[in-house]
């Protein structure tokens, strides 16, 4: 009896030891720097390129437009329609996806493909995510430098507007073209609100703890914003189209922003991407709020083509 028990104990400990050895051998392999990364999150793609991991990006989402290098990469769907077959066929060793893509994450995990999940939040989360992603892909130092650049850029913008009066600003993130229907605005939460705050504007809906919301024209009339910043995600618009869009606001002639010609239309794909280019957005906000280009001249026209990294 004893011999049997001893035999079992021996066998079990041998298996346990083998398991430990295998685990130790496998662990560094799993943590090895990934060489073929697929990013379904445009902001993460930009972060990867900013930290120098661009050459390792094997495919991107259908919404990725920046940096220009992504134009050549295969597209594998996006938030609601990830193309799992295509992702698997590209044999990635890391997939960056949204935390809400639970089905996709489960499938990838079953296939043994490591995943890294992102969740959008505040402005501070962006550089934190950059550093975290950097250490995941084995570029902690480069990611740290890139994140520090972003933080420095944001600090510069903050310093440039320090001490100025803070105009009460309405941040419009969408509406029906050429009319004032279905107006979405930024509430007091999320990176766009944080950027506005940093660039020296006082969000008129800062007290509502939501990232975005639809408001009635009445509410806007009550808030009486001094400045309206309106984000358009196309890279550019014809001068005519821009004039027409700004003209829609003349339906509310009594608002100080409209009365004083302080409706600013900002164009650029980076405006929706909580990635390294938030510095550009912050600068565009500050320019619109305080820039020398406003005043008697036609309101500024922002199109951001420079590349920060």
């Amino acid at each position: 009896m004893m011999a049997w028990a001893r035999g079992w104990a021996l066998g079990a400990s041998a298996i346990a030891a083998l398991a430990v050895v295998l685990a130790l051998a496998a662990a560094p392999a799993a943590q090895q720097a990934p060489r073929r990364i697929i990013s379904l999150v445009p902001s993460a793609t930009e972060m990867l390129f900013a930290m120098g991991a661009g050459p390792r990006v094997a495919a991107v989402s259908s919404y990725d437009r920046f940096p220009p290098e992504v134009q050549r990469l295969p597209r594998v769907g996006a938030l609601v329609d990830p193309d799992v077959e295509r992702i698997l066929s590209l044999r990635p060793d890391l997939v960056v996806a949204y935390a809400s893509q639970v089905d996709l994450l489960a499938q990838l995990t079953r296939a043994g493909i490591p995943v890294y999940t992102c969740r959008h939040g505040s402005l501070a989360d962006i550089t934190a995510a950059m550093r975290d992603l950097g250490s995941r892909v084995g570029l902690a130092a480069d990611a740290g430098r890139a994140a520090a650049d972003v933080e420095r850029g944001l600090a510069d913008v903050r310093a440039s507007v320090a001490g100025r009066p803070r105009p009460r600003t309405l941040l419009v993130i969408g509406r029906e073209p050429q009319s004032l229907r279905a107006i979405s605005v930024s509430g007091g939460f999320g990176f766009l609100h944080d950027l506005l705050d940093l660039a020296g504007g006082e969000n008129v809906f800062g007290d509502v703890k939501r990232e975005s919301m639809m408001v009635a024209t009445e509410t806007i009339l009550v808030k009486q914003p001094d400045v309206i910043l309106e984000l358009h995600y196309s890279d550019s618009a014809s001068r005519d189209e821009e004039t027409r869009e700004r003209g829609a606001w003349t339906l509310l002639p009594g608002i100080p922003a409209v009365k004083n010609g302080r409706v600013h239309l900002l164009y650029g794909g980076e405006l929706v991407v909580p990635g390294p280019r938030v510095v550009l957005t912050a600068r565009a906000f500050a320019d619109a709020l305080f820039g020398v280009r406003s005043g008697s001249q036609p309101p500024p026209r922002h199109r951001i083509e420079e590349v920060v990294f």
């Binding site: 029906e176 073209p177 050429q178 009319s179 229907r181 189209e241 027409r244």
Partner: peptide, 10 residues
């Protein structure tokens, strides 16, 4: 992006 007499394209 068309609008006529205050009526939007939508």
């Amino acid at each position: 992006h068309l609008s006529l007499w205050g009526v939007s394209a939508v």
